[in-house]
């Protein structure tokens, strides 16, 4: 048998685990991610954020190859800064979504190996979630999970948010939108579940909550321990971050 020379080429990608998740409400949006970063069976760090505040009405979660993810967030932020320079206001979320599509597709043949979920508040005050694939296909949804434990979390959300495989009690119907406290509980349950069953998920959970102007949903945040406000403009939308421990094993 003849041996041919082996061509071993450099692989510019790796996979850093973790999971992200976003759920839109009527006048709020919750965007969450765990903070474990791993490669293979090694935990690189227990705290590497995957969820980033872009503006007071938009939050971006990135998952996949961490180096690509961090660079992508930096580049999006640069584009938002130029928008601010040109228009003296923050870019609306539907425009950010289209921007992200074009930025991802521009690298169609050497993609950012990143799944993006963008959450926030639309100009009409509704909660929004946009999800993307690595080359820019995107759609607006009510909820989306992505990353290592997508296959564990998404079916749970389909059942609990879209009420798939449930039938309402006679004479009743399922709600169009869930209240914020219910959504926060679902997010926490999703991640504790994923932590139990997926080795790449765990350590801690970061949940960003974006509220529309004068949203009554603020009530649900009154008694949450360790909540931190991240709002920086007077536009009316408000951003909060809630952190919770997950199992570290």
């Amino acid at each position: 048998m003849t041996q041919r020379p082996q061509q071993h080429s450099f692989n510019p990608y790796t996979e850093n685990g973790g999971t992200i998740l976003a759920i839109a409400g009527a006048d709020f949006s919750v965007i969450a991610g765990d903070t474990r970063q791993s490669e293979g069976y090694s935990i690189q760090t227990r705290y590497a954020p995957k969820v980033f505040r872009l503006t007071d009405k938009a939050v971006l979660a990135v998952n996949g190859f961490a180096a690509d993810g961090n660079m992508f967030v930096k580049k999006v932020r640069q584009r938002l800064e130029w928008y601010r320079h040109a228009h003296s206001k923050d870019m609306p979320i539907r425009a950010i979504a289209r921007l992200i599509q074009t930025m991802l597709y521009a690298r169609r043949f050497f993609p950012y190996y990143v799944y993006n979920i963008l959450g926030g508040i639309e100009e009409d005050g509704t909660g929004a979630v946009y999800s993307f694939d690595p080359v820019g296909s995107y759609e607006r949804e009510a909820c989306r999970a992505a990353g290592a434990a997508q296959s564990l979390v998404q079916p749970f959300l389909d059942n609990q948010i879209y009420f798939k495989n449930q039938t309402p009690a006679p004479g009743t119907s399922f709600p169009q939108h869930l209240p914020l406290n219910t959504v926060l509980s679902l997010v926490i349950d999703s991640f504790t579940g994923a932590t139990e069953r997926h080795i790449e998920v765990g350590d801690s959970l970061e949940m960003y909550v974006v509220l529309a102007k004068e949203s009554p949903s603020i009530q649900a945040l009154q008694n949450i321990s360790g909540i931190q406000e991240k709002t920086s403009t007077a536009d009316g939308e408000r951003i909060f971050v809630i952190r919770r421990d997950l199992k570290k094993d």
Binding site: P12, Y13, T14, N16, Q37, E39, S42, Q44, T45, R46, Y47, A48, F65, A66, A67, N70, M71
Partner: peptide, 25 residues
């Protein structure tokens, strides 16, 4: 903090590269 040939970065209170990430970390 750590950085490698792929541009992957992270920070922690203990770090080790290479074989050390399995044995020493």
């Amino acid at each position: 903090a750590y950085v490698d040939l792929l541009g992957t970065t992270y920070s922690a209170s203990t770090l080790a590269t290479g074989y050390g990430s399995y044995i020493a970390q």
